[in-house]
Computed example of a mutant assay.
Amino acid sequence: MPLHAPKPAILVLEDGRTFHGESYGAEGETFGEAVFSTGMTGYQETLTDPSYHQQVVVMTAPHIGNTGINDEDMESTRIWVAGYVVRDPARVPSNWRSQRSLDDELVAQGVVGISGIDTRALTRHLRERGAMRVGISSVESDPAALLAKVTASAEMQGANLSAAVSVSEAYVVPAVGEKKFTVAAVDLGIKANTPRMMAERGIEVHVLPATSTLAEVLAVSPDGLFFSNGPGDPAATTRQVELLQSALDAGLPYFGICFGNQLFGRALGFGTYKLKYGHRGINQPVMDRTTGKVEVTAHNHGFAVDAPLEGSTETPYGTATVSHVCLNDDVVEGLELRDAAGALKSFSVQYHPEAAAGPHDAAYLFDRFCDLMAARTTAQEA
């Protein structure tokens, strides 16, 4: 922790609302889309989730940093948030796994943050007015000057960001124990726990760059195709939609998470739209309409699929239905694609069944993907 007193800092929202606090993490200036996360645990996983690229995350839990930072819980190789907002940062981390403080890690990675502000008031403002652009600065004390920079910064709507967070070269995560399946996983901002959970089920995971072609996908002889979570506006992402449509034409089973759900929706002919303030945190109730089971799930999305909650939709690839729905606001949280005989061909969910910090209610979806690939293998052998 720093030995000197923190510098004053200001946070200015796009609509002019201003908060005064203290610099937390690196000193400087940063801009992004202001969003709030309701998780009381798992801040390290949030910080290192590539889906938060170009977003300034406001933590609704008042006390952050008490368990420090370790090298095992990273979801990627770096912190991706554009800025970090907390009310009461821990002065001293206390956990047997802690290797350094959160503040030191933010400084080391150049992440500008602010502390000591009323995050409850800020969250209420975002709930009422919606997610918006924001600036944090410990080098500019004039709110009007910072506001001018905020309004000149990039917006999230229309942003194509997947290539910025994806790997540049493919890599393989081997299956644990006996290899049962091979999956081509297109990295749009993948979290480390996703291929890990697949590997535990006997899947050899080939993680491919976001720019991969159908030929590159088929070159690994996959039993299934996976699209990961990721940042940006799905309406601005067309290359991966075309790849997915070609894969569906080829009869490849598909499983998508979060951004992968939005792109699946667009591939099937549905639209997407920006939510007012999005879903973020680890306490969102979702119903799996195929089983009637209600799950508490982890979310991080500012966009959603515009598909009818009732009935089915005929697409060039089969019959599509909404399989999961958020019980808070009826947002589409999952899609299914079935053939003429009613057999499942592909599916996706808007939330995170791989949530490393929990909850783990939806981990069964990886088993559902295995069942889908096994059924295809059986049909091919028949």
Rank of each mutant, 00 (worst) to 15 (best):
E336D: 15
D71M: 07
A219S: 15
V294D: 00
V165M: 02
R124D: 15
T30D: 09
V57E: 00
L263F: 03
P253V: 04
N300S: 15
R17Y: 01
H299I: 00
E140D: 12
H301Q: 04
N328V: 13
S23N: 14
A343F: 05
V176H: 09
P353N: 07
P359S: 11
I117T: 07
Q109R: 04
T238E: 15
T67H: 06
A379Q: 15
T123N: 11
S76F: 00
V294I: 15
F303K: 08
S138N: 06
L225F: 14
K191H: 09
G251A: 07
A108N: 11
V183M: 13
Y254M: 04
S168C: 06
L372M: 09
A307I: 01
K293E: 14
R17I: 11
H20I: 05
Q109L: 01
V176P: 01
N160R: 15
T30M: 12
F226H: 08
V207S: 05
G21W: 03
T290K: 13
H324W: 02
S153P: 07
G318M: 08
G292H: 07
V107P: 03
G292T: 03
N300W: 13
R289W: 05
H352K: 10
I136T: 07
R87E: 15
Y43P: 05
A355C: 11
A267R: 04
A192V: 09
L244P: 03
R201P: 01
F259E: 00
L344S: 12
T123R: 14
G68S: 10
T290D: 11
H63A: 08
T377E: 13
T290I: 00
R289N: 03
A247Y: 01
S98P: 07
